[in-house]
Design a protein around this nucleic acid. Structure first.
Lengths: 144, 144
DNA sequence: TATTAAATGATAATAATTTTCAATTACAAC
DNA sequence: GTTGTAATTGAAAATTATTATCATTTAATA
């Protein structure tokens, strides 16, 4: 993952947030998986070891981490967000519309387009989202 | 808008869907606005003139139209989809994270990247989503 | 015009997320 | 190290967004 735990703690504090044990655990959980996890999935995992940590705390922590850019938020087709630190360098997604599998890819640069848009519209662009949606190989067979 | 009402009716029928008065009204409503509208917003507008059309019908119609590519679905930050026919040519979005304003832009071609990803991963890519998130000019002032 | 599969509206159900609030806790200042 | 304070927590309830169910109606072919 891109940021050490210590670094994350510092960034949190710099923004007036506390670095609580609960938050540490959420961060570790997200970091320990390669996949994108939904809040519910993270909760499940956390809950096994720490049954007293509530789902709401998960939501709140993910919100903050995403806002600070420490984890990456994905808005796949449905109405459910998921999160990863994975290779938390900036990357993009390829999502299977059937099984929900996510493949990350990077190395595609959008900064020129971003600059153009910024100039044309006066927007202060903070982030972007590039996602391709399709069928993974396994699901291509399954669906026919 | 890109498709005439007649064309849409034909496409619906070709896919085994009926072209009902309710659907016609939903289509007209979406087409009559430049903005991206949520299902709820569309319902509100429809409801004024046609109080007997239910929200569920709106959802169902939007689903079908989006599936057939007749309208464009947007997954902005929150957990809420919105729809537009606007300049229903393929386009991308610039979204204000504060007020939700959406600016469409087009003329950016991703087909080469799409082809590369398709080859590399074996995915059958059906669609993509490119969204920039930031603050519009008005909100930049407001936020500070 | 009759037939039939698809669509509708109402209601209920589910899913995802947010709010509220009293109790607790991290951490900066002393 | 103690302390004060603002931030955080967990539980429960509330909202929001969306989907399923089902009896009734209707569009579109034959």
């Amino acid at each position: 993952m891109r940021f050490s735990e210590k670094k994350i703690a510092t960034i949190l504090r710099q923004h007036g947030y506390k670095f609580t044990p609960q938050r540490r655990i959420v961060i570790q959980t997200v970091a320990s998986s390669q996949d994108h996890l939904t809040a519910a999935a993270i909760y499940e995992r956390v809950h096994q070891e720490h049954p007293n940590i509530g789902l709401v705390t998960i939501y709140r922590t993910l919100d903050i981490l995403a806002k600070l850019g420490l984890i990456c938020e994905l808005h796949a087709g449905g109405s459910c967000r998921s999160y990863t630190t994975g290779a938390s360098e900036h990357h993009h997604h390829l999502i299977c519309s059937n099984c929900g599998k996510v493949i990350d890819f990077s190395g595609y640069d959008l900064s020129q387009l971003e600059q153009r848009l910024s100039l044309e519209t006066g927007f202060d662009i903070e982030d972007h989202l590039l996602e391709f949606i399709g069928l993974c190989q396994a699901c291509q067979k399954e669906v026919r």
